[in-house]
Design a protein around this nucleic acid. Structure first.
Lengths: 197, 197
DNA sequence: AACGATACGGAACGTTGTTCCGCTTTACAA
DNA sequence: TTGTAAAGCGGAACAACGTTCCGTATCGTT
């Protein structure tokens, strides 16, 4: 019923070419800086990398969360879409759940600082929270439900809870020899199994 | 037997009375502010609450970590000392481990923001890291070893790893209706059990 | 009382996020 | 091609924070 264009007849003129170019540049710069310095890198660093003023960043991406979302949207979408695919192709729902969680963990662990930001109660990251949750919780719910139905796991854990837990376990997982997030997540998933008896 | 003086003959003159008073005041103020606003509350807030300049805080506690340690030292010590006691009084080592972890979780969850700070890779919290690890990891190791020896749990998880995982799971656990850190920690501990077969 | 050591307060500095506004560039029409 | 309003831009400016520094006040001792 609405969007910036609508399509009716209003012609809502498309963005200026320089603006479109800048947005592109900004996304590339942000991606590079995120890799180099983590997602909490100073805004000024990103602006500098892009050869742009900080104002330009805020015009295109009102909050840092919007920028992060834009940078990682493709990968989040891919992860979301992998859920049903895994469910269809795996031997058991539990196996599918495990593989999907692995995908999620790999994503978080390779994005320096993302997991931390994801759990931050800092207002301004609400958009990021909402996006991740909206996109991934339903997928996780589907996998979880399937595994419950097949009698493989306990039924008293909600997807949102599990995902927050997994996200938390991924915090600070980069280059820390004494911490292996993947291992701990495996333990958590193992703990989901129905207790014997 | 002694006071801050080492005892030899050096006379290392004791602190001035106002300094001692201020340190006391500061600890009380910090504790109050930590409860009200979390452990990441602005230094200026603590100074104001204590009726003191910020310089005074930094003179007594060179880093924020030192202040946090001073405020919570008693409780960390209590937790550490509870380990062997639980091991002695519990039915099985695994039960002792579970109860001890519960103690640890309760401590973290009730100290607003502590868990987050504990995992922060921010330099300046190194002292805090070191203190918690030095004090608690050996205790956890003892419990873990006992449970391994009794054949209750897998043997390939180190204490430091487990504690970091538990600490991470406690992040953001305050007043969040969709997140129950205790539950997830239970799952993690359950995942420690030897797989059937 | 006087004096040196100790401790204090808070201004000042550096680093961040975020806003704001004067100037530039663009797109379009004449 | 040229003129013009709208769109966009850069970066100065502001606010909030941690941290340092130093002139001044206080303490303990002589």
């Amino acid at each position: 019923m609405n969007d910036s264009d609508g399509g009716a007849g209003r012609a809502a003129r498309s963005k200026r070419a320089d603006a479109r170019r800048n947005e592109e540049t900004l996304l590339d710069a942000a991606a590079a800086v995120f890799v180099a310095s983590g997602v909490e890198a100073p805004v000024r660093d990103i602006a500098a990398k892009a050869g742009v003023g900080v104002g330009t960043i805020y015009r295109h991406f009102p909050t840092r969360a919007d920028l992060i979302i834009a940078v990682y949207r493709h990968q989040v979408e891919a992860c979301a879409e992998a859920g049903p695919a895994l469910l269809a192709s795996s031997a058991t729902p539990h196996a599918a759940l495990g593989q999907w969680i692995n995908l999620f963990v790999d994503f978080l662990v390779t994005k320096h600082g993302l997991a931390a930001v994801l759990q931050s109660d800092n207002a301004g990251f609400e958009t990021l929270h909402a996006y991740f949750l909206d996109r991934l919780v339903p997928v996780c719910t589907q996998l979880l439900d399937a595994a419950v139905d097949s009698g493989e796991i306990r039924s008293d854990v909600e997807a949102i809870q599990l995902m927050r837990g997994v996200g938390n376990l991924c915090i600070g997982a980069e280059h820390n020899p004494h911490y292996d997030a993947r291992r701990l997540v495996e333990l958590l998933i193992a703990g989901l199994r129905l207790p014997p008896g």
